[in-house]
């Protein structure tokens, strides 16, 4: 049984034929112009996507005036900018808010949405596909249309200006439910059958078999949900009302709204805001691969 599963989940097993297909019938090195053009286009695209990050990093070390004037190399204003940011913003508090909201949201969303995705795929019910289709339809409702009723709901629950008001609406994330359902299609049903024969209850199967096997899916979903909640702007803006509840993203927005914005300070704040999502991405990228290779052992 576990051989079958390992084979299904092991990317190496599928690789030789895929490589052969990529190589094509002529083999490598025949045509140099094609690859040259390809690399030039790719380099240009890489430059276009990397340049804003470079600009952001350069900006942290320059004064606002130099940034506006288009200075494109590093200066010596990093500590000044950082000092100004710390003076203007209660950084530990704002970072705590951002992390607290993003982490709780991510854990809760993964738990609830993966349970839902698992249930949608594993259990059969005559209404299953209809309910699922209805859910997917709801994805197309723009958030702006939900904002006012959601606000009324939160206000009547007494949750305005609380973390819960931001976290609760994110938990049943339709896209993540869909994502888990799709991924669950690759989950070997034999594993569940075997676990049942071994006497595990459904929740035990979910915790001890499903979750470890689907580690890679959880890792990818973590990246998606964490980034979404970390960068969430509109809803926190509407529902938070005091400075001590603000997230990093909201803070950058108010820094930007000064009549004479200090772009050096804004760049430092932007880098600080970008770092956690970057770190999570790189950490989980490794786990993603590990999960793929060692999910069933």
């Amino acid at each position: 049984m576990s051989d079958v599963a390992a084979h299904r989940l092991d990317p190496e097993a599928a690789e030789p034929s895929a490589r052969a297909a990529l190589r094509g019938p002529d083999g490598p090195g025949r045509d140099m112009i094609g690859p040259a053009v390809k690399y030039i286009v790719l380099s240009l695209a890489a430059f276009v996507s990397v340049f804003p990050f470079f600009w952001m990093l350069v900006g942290t070390t320059n004064s606002s005036y130099d940034i506006v004037r288009g200075k494109a190399w590093f200066g010596d204003q990093l500590l000044v900018n950082l000092g100004n940011l710390i003076e203007q913003v209660d950084l530990p508090r704002v970072l705590f808010n951002s992390f607290y909201i993003a982490i709780i949201s991510t854990v809760a969303t993964l738990l609830v949405s993966s349970l839902a995705g698992y249930a949608f795929e594993i259990f059969r019910h005559k209404w299953r596909e209809r309910i699922f289709a209805a859910l997917l339809l709801m994805l197309s409702i723009p958030f702006a249309a939900l904002m006012v009723p959601l606000f009324v709901m939160m206000a009547s629950a007494g949750l305005i200006n609380t973390y819960s008001a931001i976290i609760l609406p994110t938990i049943a994330n339709i896209f993540i439910i869909f994502y888990f359902r799709q991924a669950t299609k690759a989950f070997p049903h034999e594993l569940r059958d075997a676990a049942k024969i071994d006497g595990l209850k459904e929740w035990q199967i979910f915790l001890r078999v499903y979750m470890p096997v689907m580690r890679s899916t959880y890792a990818a979903a973590t990246i998606i949900v964490f980034t979404l909640t970390w960068n969430n702007y509109l809803w926190p803006l509407i529902v938070l009302q005091t400075n001590d509840m603000k997230t990093m993203v909201l803070t950058i927005s108010s820094l930007n709204s000064a009549y004479t914005p200090d772009f050096g300070v804004i760049m430092v704040a932007t880098v600080i805001t970008t770092l956690p999502t970057l770190i999570i991405f790189f950490l989980l990228q490794r786990l993603f691969v590990q999960g793929m290779l060692g999910s069933v052992k």
Partner: peptide
């Protein structure tokens, strides 16, 4: 309490 101009209008 500090919010950007457009943010105050939106809120």
């Amino acid at each position: 309490q500090e919010f950007a101009r457009e943010e105050i209008e939106q809120k």
